[in-house]
């Protein structure tokens, strides 16, 4: 499990997550992403799930937390490259509205 942070166009911060997201790994991912948000103060956060091989509802909590963090700063969150089996869990929480630019 790791998260790779980069900066995109238009004030975007891109966090590419790799590996498995569960309760154990979510705390480290949360810390790394929030540190990058504090350092870079982005207008938009993009969470890239292309490298995620497993996710349970801890991933939903991770997204909800980052959404609150960014909303508190007047920013937005977008989820990209989400495999179908992970999208299934996101849809249960209604988080799929953040998918592919529907901020």
């Amino acid at each position: 499990m790791a998260v790779y942070i980069s900066e995109g166009r238009g004030g975007e911060l891109i966090a590419k997550i790799t590996g498995e997201i569960d309760h154990h790994s979510a705390r480290w991912l949360r810390s790394d992403i929030d540190t990058a948000i504090s350092d870079k103060s982005p207008e938009k956060l993009v969470l890239d799930f292309s490298g995620v091989s497993f996710m349970d509802s801890s991933g939903v909590g991770l997204v909800m937390g980052r959404y609150k963090n960014m909303a508190g700063r007047g920013g937005t969150v977008r989820l990209v490259n989400m495999p179908d089996y992970i999208q299934k869990v996101m849809e249960l929480a209604g988080m799929d509205r953040l998918l592919n630019g529907k901020e």
Binding site: R30, D56, S57, S58, V60, G61, K88, V89, L92, A93
Partner: peptide, 23 residues
């Protein structure tokens, strides 16, 4: 119940049982 959690401060989504029931 969906979204019920006793630990909202720890970013628990309250979806554990809903996910189990769905899958």
């Amino acid at each position: 119940e969906p979204l019920f959690t006793t630990l909202p401060d720890e970013e628990r989504s309250g979806l554990g049982f809903s996910v189990m029931e769905s899958l």
